[in-house]
Amino acid sequence: MGLLSGCSLAISDAFALLCIKFGYSPAQVLLVKSLAMMAIMIPLLIYKRIDILKLKRKDTVLNIVKSICENAGDIFFYYGMDAIGMGDATSIAAGSMPIFSPLFACIFIQEKCRFHDCIGLVINVAGIILISQPEFIFGNGTNPSSSIGYVYSILAGLFLSTGTVCSRAMSNELSLIVVIFYNGVLGTVLTLILVVPTSNHRMYSLILDYPITIPYIVGMVIWFLAYLYSFNRALQVQSAGKTSILLNISLIVSFLADVIVFHKHVVNGEIIGATLIIFSSIVVFLVTCYETKQNKNEETTLILKPQQHSTGLDKKP
């Protein structure tokens, strides 16, 4: 689910960036996604007979904070994509999440940070430095629009990490329908405030002028729904740090989209940095598989021991 969420997010973001290139503002794009999430989830809430007014107070507060942070992170991320390209923005945002998420998880929900998690964090930091190439390290002048794009991307990682920890702290029995519904409601409220002052064109005029954006919007919504479900499902069964690192698989799709769809020239430093971040994802994936196998073996041993005692199988001949 962690890997699936990364691929789904990158495909959705590619469609979103295509819309932004046609003149849509990030607030307009996010407003469409939020309205779609509400429209899809309301019938499911009715069908499942879920009363959102009867949720635990803790889950309600966490959903509100999570939705505000994630939607704010999405807005910063879209501005970052527009300024520095999809591959770089994804690398910075997704690469900073494994830094902020374990830190916040340790502070607020007392999740443990193990040695291999720290190794993944260091690799991610190295990858981010190679991609962004800050002037105080490399000594080269940076385009002001690129600098603000890097800042937007880091802020996106910060806000998305906060939402990740909120999702991790929710009750395990909480339906993901509720989580996605809150994301749509708070996203709609936030973007309705921002859409007028940040948009140069009315959405209906853009749709009439560029009907090709209709399938882009549909694809963006479908893949974003797949991301929300798979990412929050992964957080129900896995730590925030591991899930954030596995999300980095989105870098592969993002850089492919940069080269194939947006015809962006990718330099060696960006490729090396992205490779380091992807390498950390592979390490975490292998470690997670090993830990899962060990836990299953331990559980099997604990189950078999009482059975052996009761049947006398453990007695020596």
Results as ranks from 00 to 15, higher is better:
L186G: 07
T142S: 04
A226Y: 03
G141M: 08
G23E: 05
N297E: 12
G95Q: 05
Y227H: 15
L246P: 02
D82H: 10
C106E: 04
P43M: 04
S205T: 14
G187K: 07
E173S: 15
E111F: 03
M81K: 06
P26S: 04
S167E: 02
T188M: 11
G139W: 04
N172R: 09
Q308L: 12
M41S: 05
V267S: 08
R202K: 14
A10K: 06
I107N: 05
E291L: 15
S67M: 05
S91E: 06
T292R: 12
A27M: 01
Y216M: 15
L228P: 09
I214P: 13
F181H: 12
T275K: 01
V178K: 01
T198W: 01
A89L: 13
H263G: 04
S132E: 02
D117M: 08
T243V: 15
M1N: 13
S175M: 00
D117F: 02
D209G: 15
C289K: 15
T142Q: 05
I303P: 12
K316S: 08
I245P: 03
I272W: 00
F77I: 01
S175E: 04
S167N: 13
A94R: 02
P197N: 06
L18E: 10
S250P: 04
S91L: 10
Q307W: 13
I148M: 09
V189W: 10
I282W: 04
M41T: 08
Y24W: 14
I260M: 11
V196T: 13
S250N: 04
L17N: 07
T162W: 04
I278D: 05
S153H: 07
E270S: 12
A83W: 03
V283S: 12
R233G: 07
V165L: 07
L55A: 14
T292L: 12
P26I: 04
I75E: 01
V267L: 13
N172Q: 09
A39L: 09
G23M: 00
L194R: 01
Y150E: 09
A240Q: 02
A234K: 07
S171A: 03
T162S: 07
L158F: 06
L130D: 06
G85K: 08
I303C: 14
Y152C: 07
A156Q: 01
